[in-house]
Design a protein around this nucleic acid. Structure first.
Lengths: 361, 361
DNA sequence: TTTTTATCCGTGTGCGCACACGAAATTAGA
DNA sequence: TCTAATTTCGTGTGCGCACACGGATAAAAA
């Protein structure tokens, strides 16, 4: 069957009584057009609802868009950051025909110097678009400004910081995710009882994330008028498993050696460490909610030591970040500044589909 | 920055000592090539890892791919089918530059004759690809076969039927979604108590869907060794609200006029009708799980008459169905025959993001 | 007016590919 | 051996657009 006929530059040129070259100059603001003809052409473009053919356009153009990412290296300790990278890769494959090149940069998320170095290296040849995980808020803000001055479009991923020069944030609403966790624990602990919030804090990294989650959690119960639930917060320093166990047993166990909580909310992906601890402990009906689909947590989900994991949709974060840059730079669309992804509730029974779905598309 | 250089047909032609036209004939199996040169060219194509430039290819080709969909008309009673249509529209916008045309067809899902008629009309000019909601299993199977004979690639959406000539099924694993519902009710009803499964059945339509969900629900408790939960099934004919209320009160209320269940699982989107009924009833701590994000159900989710809604991801279903056809026909990729989408658990607290996410992309 | 300069605009080429047409090479027929 | 019928192949054109180049026209200077 024949192709549907679109409006072409030639059509506009003809109708306006000018040449294609002139129309082209109008479209691209390349100047060298008299105000009179410019207006005439612009009017006809609107009138005929002209939209450029992105295919022909990229084919004819030799331009290459340079995209870059700046993410934490994912080490043995946390494979989380592998997933946004996968999503980015997926998006990259989809649109690389459109003349986009991609270069990833990594830093050590325990070490702000490595973030600093990576930024500097990256900005030696400023890319057109940059996906940044702004873990060290001050540094990130500084470099974002510098990048923007150099003409780079910056998108934040996963972690939100208050800043204005970035073009978008793609990630989860941390506060809201805390409310979700609260609701789950509320629904699942029918009798009265104490709930615990466990923050496992990494001294170097930013913990604003965790705070928002905790606040959301508390807010849920504050909103709810009739709540008999007592809630206490436990802060623990992140370190190897063994030493955490000691701290946990001090905080979680009652005099009788039994867990004194009905529900626990672990505010990050370290929830598997809590589950490790719980496994060998005398616990009653205890519900545990945590974050992220790390292998070690999944094993506990399977065994029932963890009931719910809140997924941050890391793959989708990567995918959408990349697409956001594509929309801005190539498709010249305006995009939403805050792109919140769904707060997926994952249990043993629906886990398969979240895992599988990370590879598709 | 300059474009990255890909391998072009001209490169292959040069290396093989033939002309571009010959290479073209090899690539498209258009014959008129001697076996000797054919093999030589094929070898070089592999050797150089040639991949056609989809952009240039569609630009040069005048071919139009005709896609069609056959979905239920969404009436005032159920807006569900609006959403797959939205997803399809979204995908269509994304890829229409590649020379795809799209024509939707609709039928009345109370009426198998209208399905029959729509199929016949559709097949007068068989499309290249078809997305079908196979609600009437026998008819659907028959027409799928006919369409496939006429060279149409068929993809099933939302409802799965046992058949082989379709190219893929995009939708939810109904059985598994029942297990998810079961787990939710199990976690949320700590004390012993009775659970109810409510099937609100539409006489004409296929109910295989609902059965799988019920089976999954039951299977969960069968798998679980130590379950004190009693489970009973209640079948109700779908009809206007008032007459349903009568049936429900007969089945759900005990002698004392109180709900005798701790949890209810409504196996389809009619859950709002149950919630309507519950609203004016003396209920204890009752958990309700149902399907789909219809407005009327959402209102109840908000008010707490429904606790969980399982989303079928209808928008994504539409989107992925269309993309499946695109992959098959345009990109010539092989795709997975069963494309299960995540079983999203939706509560009052995370609903926003599922609703919003339906419009983006 | 003529020349110079600046402003405005049309034409041509190529991006990588699909496809038509006709030329060359090969084979069959006489 | 020469011609006719195939088979095999090369060349040319255009898809819609970006961009370079140079020509035309108008404005400024002589």
């Amino acid at each position: 069957m024949e192709r549907l006929t679109r409006v072409r530059i030639a059509d506009i040129a003809h109708k306006a009584g000018v040449s294609a070259g002139t129309v082209d100059r109008v479209i691209h603001n390349r100047g060298e057009v008299s105000p009179r003809t410019r207006q005439k052409v612009e009017a006809i473009i609107r009138e005929m609802h002209y939209e450029p053919d992105l295919l022909a356009s990229t084919l004819a153009s030799k331009k290459t868009y340079r995209f870059a990412s700046l993410l934490p290296k994912s080490d043995h300790e946390s494979l989380f950051w592998l997933q946004p990278a996968q999503g980015i890769e997926k998006a990259f494959k989809r649109i690389k025909h459109y003349g986009v090149a991609y270069q990833p940069y990594y830093f050590d998320y325990h070490n702000n110097n490595s973030f600093f170095d990576a930024c500097n290296k990256l900005l030696e040849v400023p890319p057109d678009g940059l996906i940044m995980a702004p873990l060290f808020a001050d540094l990130a803000a500084h470099f974002t400004d510098r990048a923007v001055e150099l003409g780079t479009a910056v998108v934040f991923i996963n972690t939100h910081i208050n800043h204005s020069s970035q073009r978008a944030y793609v990630g989860q609403d941390a506060f809201r995710s805390g409310k979700v966790a609260a609701q789950l624990l509320d629904l699942c602990t029918c009798c009265e009882g104490e709930l615990g919030i466990i923050n496992i804090i990494n001294q170097k990294g930013s913990s604003g994330h965790l705070m928002s989650r905790e606040e959301g959690f508390l807010d849920f119960f504050a909103q709810k008028k009739s709540s008999h639930k007592k809630i206490s917060t436990i802060n623990v320093q992140a370190r190897p498993a063994v030493s955490i166990h000691k701290e946990l047993s001090e905080n979680l166990l009652g005099m009788d050696g039994e867990i004194k909580f009905k529900g626990l909310f672990v505010t990050n992906s370290r929830v598997y460490q809590v589950a490790d601890f719980l496994e060998n402990t005398n616990k009653g009906p205890l519900r545990v909610v945590g974050y992220d689909l790390l292998d070690r947590s999944l094993a506990h989900l399977q065994k029932g030591n963890i009931d719910f994991l809140i997924s941050q949709n890391p793959v989708a974060q990567g995918y959408h970040s990349f697409m956001a840059l594509f929309d801005i730079l190539v498709r010249k669309k305006t995009i939403e500044k805050r792109q919140y992804l769904p707060i997926d509730i994952v249990t043993r029974e629906n886990i398969d589909y979240y895992l599988k779905h990370q590879n598709n598309d």
